[in-house]
Design a protein around this nucleic acid. Sequence first.
DNA 1: TATTTTAATGTAAACGTTTTCATCATGGTT
DNA 2: AACCATGATGAAAACGTTTACATTAAAATA
Lengths: 334, 334
Amino acid sequence: MATTIKDIAKRAGVSIATVSRSLNEDEKVKEETKNLVLSIAEELDYKPNLLARSFVTKKSNIIGLVMPDIFGEFFMELIRGVDDVCFSKGYYTMVTSSHSKRSTVESIIDYMSKGIVGGIILMTPSINDEIKKTLKNTQLPLIIINSKSELEQYDSISLDNYKGAYDLVNFLIKTKKYKKIAHISGPKENNDSINREKGYLDALKDNGIEINKSWILRGDFTTEQGKICSESLLKMKNRPQAIFASNDMTAIGCYQIARNMGMKIPDDIAIAGFDDIFVSQFLSPRMTTVKVPIFDLGKKAAELLVKKIETEKVNSKKIHHLKLSTKLVVGESC
Amino acid sequence: MATTIKDIAKRAGVSIATVSRSLNEDEKVKEETKNLVLSIAEELDYKPNLLARSFVTKKSNIIGLVMPDIFGEFFMELIRGVDDVCFSKGYYTMVTSSHSKRSTVESIIDYMSKGIVGGIILMTPSINDEIKKTLKNTQLPLIIINSKSELEQYDSISLDNYKGAYDLVNFLIKTKKYKKIAHISGPKENNDSINREKGYLDALKDNGIEINKSWILRGDFTTEQGKICSESLLKMKNRPQAIFASNDMTAIGCYQIARNMGMKIPDDIAIAGFDDIFVSQFLSPRMTTVKVPIFDLGKKAAELLVKKIETEKVNSKKIHHLKLSTKLVVGESC
DNA sequence: TATTTTAATGTAAACGTTTTCATCATGGTT
DNA sequence: AACCATGATGAAAACGTTTACATTAAAATA
């Protein structure tokens, strides 16, 4: 049987209330008594029962991380960032992802209603009405990771996809002197994708380059679709000099097609991606892309959430909207 | 305020005991009463307070996944496998990793003592005395993921690293006709590494090839060390025809050095790895390696653990030691 | 019919903690 | 000397469940 505050109380000859107070720093209790209790707790190797504590305080030091998927380095880095902060602040990280069998909403509801988590980090590429409605019904501390802060009333952290894409395309035009730049986008509803495309369009516009709509193809962040799109781009009579793919996975598809068609990168076709995933540095030539600080994203989200959980009483109603900047990674593919 | 069994009891005109019994399928309660209770619960959108439940039953449906690190696709796949099973069985996945600030042992102790998890999946590359001692003090259901089942008393799941390596080296000898095969190992204490090296040695032995000790170098699973080791191998007067690296990361280092030295893979030097990480398929030439079913590993571990948690009363003392087989992936690097 | 068994339900304790309220010294203020 | 504020502590309730035990009514057995 594990040691409880009762055991300590008995041994110390005080009430359990005094033990509890001694254990929870902030309370007024005579220094002497406190030290006695603390030393006995130490001696008996006392570990507070978190379940009991959370149960009575209605606060859980478990953070629920809801993601659209659990796959690849993006989510791994996110988890790592969250875990890093959680650990150092005495919190636990609980992960869940959407599934064929479970929607994002279901995950959230589950977490919210069962009293199991003390706060939620919600990472979602898009926010639909169902999610909005669900969020409205909770008063759990919440941080949203999403590019588009459609929900102004919630704290959010996002990557500056727009600027990342803008800078990259601007670099292609200004430094590399490309004028014919195609784009393979990401999924339609995906806010990351939407903002990257915007950055692309604005960079062209600002440089006085006319937009060629036939050079903008819809991808879906997969290598497969990258292949399909790049193939049709490279077979055009008036084909582009460069392809800006909405993410590295898509760009990898372009690499493969270019190689298959016997084209040299970047001489015959320049390729740029977005994300700077692990693979990208090993491709030859090294991919030009945009580094996104996912680890930091996770860290920041967790930090913000913990802060929110702990100051909830004070209820500082200030809403934060953080935007993390990306970094251009210049390789030899352009 | 959330609905509790008291609310249901009041509305249904029964005691909370009856409500509880109705909710927990297995109990004897009149069909009629049960239906009434259930319909009211539905109506009031009752969600049991998991904290309260776990607190009183001393059973948690949270599974603690303890890993040596949280980085890269290996752990991502592991988490995914665990999450997959956990979700479908109504469990939650809590992750933690070792740190500069936290040892594996501390993570375990933390999980064990705070009453927060109902079982632990412990993934560790090696088991030291401290871990052994710690495990002895718990009666929490536990599954160990580790190559070497030093701890026969605990259920374990592991990858058949030995056979994977043996088959690969055997393939290099029998099919590819290499006779001079070097090996860059992994960390000393790492059981995966140890078994892979054993497989390598035995394959050579069984094929009547004498072992050249100067061709066996100590790596540490990093690309950096792969570079260092392969450079010294390739600069030898009597240099090997092939290098079997203990994992793909190391093999990638070999690729880079070979390229730097102007050597063609596989003509000048053949390279093989282990793990079949995501990158490997994109290298040119495609790496020959060994695919390890990490996702399945996670799944199996979770399945076993859940089974253990749920049959604990019955206490079937049978200990399971599962070994998952790997699969040779033939690329063009050999 | 009297007694025993069984089924259905209620009562209340228990889990380990926090926290409100009450109690009781102690020492300072009039 | 009487009073009051204060600081330290204890008693007990509360949180939402499950569950051992008690109770009741109905059914089965004698």
